[in-house]
Amino acid sequence: MIMQIKVLFFGATADIVGSRELVLSLPENSKAIDAFQKVIKEFPSLEKHKLLFAVNEEYSKGEELLKEGDELAIFTAVSGG
């Protein structure tokens, strides 16, 4: 079975990808890190940056399983303030 998730980009990662949001199709039982690997393959220059993930608005190490409709955000270390 194939599921779809939403991938969000902000700031530097949005500039690299050229978009703020992509829909990604993945096999069921994929992890956030699997989704990330798929995105990296398409946009290798993301790897020049130190990246953080969030799954459904919570910081993640990338190990949990994703489910249909989940929201994965990929961004550089934050710099607000």
Binding site: F10, G11, A12, F75, V78, S79, G81
Partner: peptide, 14 residues
């Protein structure tokens, strides 16, 4: 609060 905000809150500056 400002130290933690700068470390954890997903906001970026250009």
């Amino acid at each position: 609060l400002i130290k933690e905000l700068k470390r954890t809150v997903p906001i970026w500056k250009k």
